[in-house]
């Protein structure tokens, strides 16, 4: 059974007004948490990525079609939509702007408290989430507004992780961070996904990050899903990606330029390590002198 199943979803903003915009056009998608690993969602601005992730936790209701999590239609009982949000945790873009409590600890506890948790269980969850997101212990009793930008981002991330959702969706989790911060946050998420068995979906613009941290990619363009394949397969379709205004990792571009000049090391190059390995192989075969 697929963890997430979208069935012919259609959604239009400002429906029945002159400014109506169709954000999702009969989109179907199946993600199997255990088999697919981390799924990356890429697409040009306005391609419907953010709308899609807001469908998954019931912040938006599809005009048509069903959102099925673990075999149940989330809109079967609209009154229980809050439970869906605990199951599919969404970390919005720039989540540091949602911090509000007096201490970081209280802020992280906001989600689990809304789930009705108290006492030791609540405490354990806060500490675990803080550990996963890489927040050190002494920061927990500070005001969230005393933290640095990167630390705030981690605190916000911990706030959603503490609900221990089965599905964790992150909208641009590394946007606006420096390279070290990006690596720490994304690496942390990767580690978290592996250890906790959570199905993780990451939305991002950075092809390098996607290539590095995701296993499968969903490419969106014009309110539709263009591709849903492994990283290697997606990035080997260089032309198709550029035609919808997307880029490929730099190393893929280099490999493609090499291929044009007679050094074909394969179209599925998307990490530097793999490119080096392929190049060395080529040299052994005597292709490159």
């Amino acid at each position: 059974m697929a963890t997430i199943e979208l069935n012919n979803i259609t959604f239009t903003y400002n429906k029945n007004t002159p400014s109506a915009v169709c954000a999702l056009d009969h989109v179907s998608l199946k993600i199997d948490g255990a088999a697919d690993g981390i799924t990356g969602l890429i697409g040009h601005t306005g391609s419907g990525k953010s709308t899609l992730v807001q469908m998954l936790n019931g912040l938006l209701k599809p005009d048509e079609g069903q959102v099925i999590l673990d075999g149940t239609d989330i809109w079967a009982e609209p009154k229980k939509i809050r439970d869906v949000r605990f199951k599919a945790g969404l970390v919005m873009q720039y989540p540091e702007y949602q911090l509000f409590a007096e201490t970081v600890r209280e802020d992280i506890a906001f989600g689990p408290k809304n789930m009705g948790l108290t006492g030791d269980e609540l405490n354990t969850r806060v500490l675990e989430a803080a550990k996963f997101s890489g927040l050190s212990h002494e920061l927990l009793d500070k005001s969230p507004f005393e933290l640095s930008g990167g630390q705030k981002r981690r605190a916000a991330l911990a706030g959603v992780m503490a609900m221990q959702p089965k599905i964790l969706i992150l909208d641009e989790p590394a946007a606006g961070l420096d390279p070290v911060g990006r690596r720490d946050i994304l690496g942390g998420i990767r580690k978290y996904a592996g250890e906790s068995g959570t199905t993780v979906i990451i939305v991002s613009h950075s092809m390098e990050d996607m290539a590095m941290y995701c296993d499968k990619l969903v490419v969106m363009a014009d309110a539709k899903i263009l591709m849903h394949k492994t990283c290697a397969e997606v990035f080997s379709e260089y032309q198709k990606l550029t035609s919808v205004g997307l880029d490929v990792p730099q190393i893929t571009r280099i490999a493609s330029a090499l291929a044009e000049n007679g050094v074909d090391i394969g179209a599925d190059i998307y990490t530097v390590d793999y490119a080096v390995k392929q190049l060395l192989k080529q040299r052994q075969r005597g292709g490159v002198s």
Partner: peptide, 29 residues
């Protein structure tokens, strides 16, 4: 509002005091 809803905030049920309190996570940010 969406971010807090994603963390299970509830703005539409409860008595007046509870609803007013539910606004704090929106107003402060």
């Amino acid at each position: 509002m969406n971010a807090q809803k994603a963390r299970g905030a509830d703005f539409s049920t409860g008595n007046l005091l509870q609803r007013a309190k539910a606004l704090i996570p929106i107003l402060i940010p």
